[in-house]
Design a protein around this nucleic acid. Sequence first.
DNA 1: CACATTCTTTAGTGATCGCTGTAAAATCAA
DNA 2: TTGATTTTACAGCGATCACTAAAGAATGTG
Lengths: 202, 202
Amino acid sequence: MTTTKRGRPRSFDRETALVQATLLFWQHGYEGTSISDLTAAMGISPPSLYAAFGDKRALFTEVVDRYGSTFGAFMDSALAQESDPRAGFARMLDEAAVSYTDPRHPAGCLVISAATNYSPQTADVEQDLRARRRANVRSFEARLQDARARRALPEGADTRALAVYFAAVVQGMSQQARDGATTQELRRVAELAMMVWPEPSC
Amino acid sequence: MTTTKRGRPRSFDRETALVQATLLFWQHGYEGTSISDLTAAMGISPPSLYAAFGDKRALFTEVVDRYGSTFGAFMDSALAQESDPRAGFARMLDEAAVSYTDPRHPAGCLVISAATNYSPQTADVEQDLRARRRANVRSFEARLQDARARRALPEGADTRALAVYFAAVVQGMSQQARDGATTQELRRVAELAMMVWPEPSC
DNA sequence: CACATTCTTTAGTGATCGCTGTAAAATCAA
DNA sequence: TTGATTTTACAGCGATCACTAAAGAATGTG
């Protein structure tokens, strides 16, 4: 496998095209974005798109993977970088409030909103995103169990319920952002949501 | 305007057909449900559907209106029937947990999930449901302002933030239900969510 | 019965969907 | 230059989309 390039070089930048595709899928969802929409935004023809990315489904998967390592990366990093679990969840919610209303890109979270309505032939796409969301809930729960083991949560804390709760709050914030909620409103929501955190004191 | 019926009688029950359409739209969303899907489930042909309901958009509007006065009615009634505002919101969240996971119909809330991905030509449908969700937030806020006026909430309570918070929790619970959360998990989420309610005591 | 009215079925409309066959254009290796 | 390789633009594939024209079938009215 050599790194030499032969043949006619690609006339467009693959990364730039991927960003355009991300914005479209983010805004309109998987089914709401057509190949025609994509090629128009990318400035390329259908055969070029298929040669560079495979098919629509493969392009979407690549978009979601890239999204997870860029726009969506704040979640894992907030939980991982804060030594105090409570501070980690608080930071995650606050950063979600800011990111979901960032005017530089579509509102909300792509993983949450890009495939909620699925026709039978796109059920696999819906299942893909659903699996990612479920993995997120499990990630929350693992962090909470770790916190409980390290005495940052009371012995009897229901980590499963807390994980589902935080996941629901994040998803609700995404939906609210798409419905027009402001950054300030969502930051207040994030602040309120943290009040359920069980305190050993009091 | 007479009530006499002339001409060939309709061969299907309109209400039954409307219920079938509701289940399809609830499960697969507006764009994910085709006329072909609808006619197959209703057991009628396209011209019969168009004669009875207008077009796809009109049928969907009728479905959503009917949904609001049946499956979705628990929200308004919970807030209206409980004299204590806190009890009203608690009951609303708990009933949402039960309703959103009721195996007798699709999971979650139709108004929340039936049109989140919109292509340009169906933006009006998205805007319709969005308006209903915004009206819901305003309804929450009005109830909270009423509660504050009646000293059931502290003077300085941020009713706007609380309204957006409760709306986000409800929407998150709907999404979690569609992702497979159980009734018990969501009831625990509802219970946790009520812990943000500001108490004049303590 | 005949007639008007309403719903039915059959078959199809143009438009758009995701996707691709074909051949010219643009590069590198020899 | 010659040939191999890869991408390009053009055009169109079959399938499905929401929707409907046309004519037959089933009712009430006269």
